[in-house]
């Protein structure tokens, strides 16, 4: 805020900050409405893969696309704060841990009687066929998590690289101008 005698710092208003960063108001509002709905739809697609079209791979990609929409609307630094690198790494491994772990649980719980990934031996208190369906649900969730984390990690790597290159080009331009 400029003070009465002309000293003080000049702070940008929210509108000017947004324009300076290259973002648009309409896209921000629509994205902030759509992103939770996209994520809800993605979870729906993962779980309902057993009843209709869908499944782990499809739902995982839709979940990743919600993060990509966030990056496009709000910029990448904010997105990295929302999904930090440690969480991304952890989720990438967690999904396949669930998948391979369900198979190992099948062997261990039945003391080596059933084979790997034979879902009947899971210790769930339901009938046989429903145990198979629930085993499949666990596995689908695992696949969805891994696919989502991998897609966002790929996108972030490529987008950071471009951001670094743009910053390098800008700095070399400024350095050229200063000279």
């Amino acid at each position: 805020m400029t003070k009465a005698d002309g000293t003080g710092t000049y702070q940008l208003t929210a509108e000017e900050r947004r324009v300076a960063a290259g973002r648009d108001l309409i896209i921000e509002v629509i994205a902030s409405l759509m992103i939770p709905l996209i994520q809800l739809f993605a979870l729906y697609v993962i779980i309902h893969g057993a009843l209709g079209a869908g499944g782990g791979f499809q739902g995982g990609v839709i979940l990743a696309s919600s993060f990509i929409l966030y990056v496009i609307a709000f910029g990448i630094t904010g997105a990295r704060k929302r999904l930090p690198e440690s969480w991304n790494t952890g989720l990438q491994s967690l999904g396949v841990y669930i998948y391979a772990g369900v198979g190992l649980v099948c062997i261990l719980v039945s003391l080596g009687f059933v084979q790997y990934l034979n879902y009947w031996a899971l210790p769930l208190p339901v009938a046989y066929e429903m145990r198979r369906a629930m085993g499949m649900d666990f596995v689908e969730i695992g696949i969805g998590i891994t696919v989502m984390a991998t897609m966002t990690s790929l996108f972030f790597d490529l987008a950071w690289k471009e951001k670094e290159e743009r910053k390098e080009v800008k700095e070399s331009n400024e350095g050229g101008e200063k000279k």
Binding site: Y97, I107, L111, G112, Q115, Y116
Partner: peptide, 28 residues
């Protein structure tokens, strides 16, 4: 107990789980 016929697949699964663990534990 866990017979020897499970060993080939357990070999693969152990290797997979180790790969993911390296990725996570290396963070620390």
């Amino acid at each position: 107990m866990i017979g020897i016929e499970h060993l080939p697949v357990l070999l693969i699964v152990l290797s997979l789980l180790a790969a993911f663990t390296i990725f996570v534990a290396g963070w620390f």
